[in-house]
Amino acid sequence: MKSLDPRVNRLNLSQTSEGEVHTNTHLVTWEVFHQEKRGKQAVHVGIVHASTPEMALILAKEQFARRGRTANLWVARTSDIYTFRTDDEDMFATVPEKLFREPAAYKVRERIEKFQQQNKC
């Protein structure tokens, strides 16, 4: 094979064996969390493949901190993260109805004014 790339020619790639290739390595994935500034939350941004936390951090830095601002990165093994099932989302459905948890649900001004009128204070 005569390539236009001098590096490819130096590699003598025609010597590489033909036939099926099976990638025998299968690294686990790590979920990556990016913190933009000190004092802000870390936000999930994606995954990297790695065999140790150190390697995961290096790859996360290359992948998710190439641009913009970064204060820190967190990584956690995907298998160490527990979540609800997505189709259980309806368990959160009644939250908006629970107005007794909201400050806006407590209005006493009218009651105070009515009391003041009745008692002429």
Partner: peptide
Amino acid sequence: ELAGRWVREALMKPNDTYKVPL
């Protein structure tokens, strides 16, 4: 793939359990 294989093999942790990313 072939030239870098030994590096990736050295990095493998056979007891790691794989889970599909979230």
